[in-house]
């Protein structure tokens, strides 16, 4: 299955293609995706994470087409 992962600063993007998608086996969870991008346990504890715009825990199971994101503020006005 394909999952889009938007990694936070300091993580490894090598497992992702140019558009941030990764080919992953069925049944993996957000914590596995974090491991894939080499996001350490301390950083993972500090991040707010979401799948398809819904906040979740690292135990959330992933499905084909999911987008995994991490909280980071965006400018605007």
């Amino acid at each position: 299955m394909r999952v889009k992962i938007l990694p936070p600063h300091g993580c490894d993007r090598n497992a992702l293609d140019a558009r941030s998608w990764a080919e992953l086996p069925e049944g993996i969870r957000v914590r596995d995706a974090l491991r894939l991008i080499r996001c350490g346990p301390l950083k993972a504890k500090l991040l707010l994470m979401s799948v398809n715009g819904e906040r979740c825990t690292p135990e959330r199971e992933l499905h084909d087409g999911d987008v995994v994101g991490f909280f980071f503020p965006v400018s605007g006005g």
């Binding site: 938007l6 990694p7 936070p8 600063h9 941030s20 707010l48 979401s50 398809n52 715009g53 987008v67 995994v68 994101g69 991490f70 909280f71 980071f72 503020p73 965006v74 400018s75 605007g76 006005g77």
Partner: peptide, 23 residues
């Protein structure tokens, strides 16, 4: 820090909580 791709949906949290003055 350099700019990185983000999950834009999470900006909604900020706007709901504080409005644009969060920025």
């Amino acid at each position: 820090l350099p700019n990185i791709p983000l999950d834009g949906s999470l900006t909604a949290y900020m706007f709901r909580e504080w409005g644009t003055q969060a920025n």
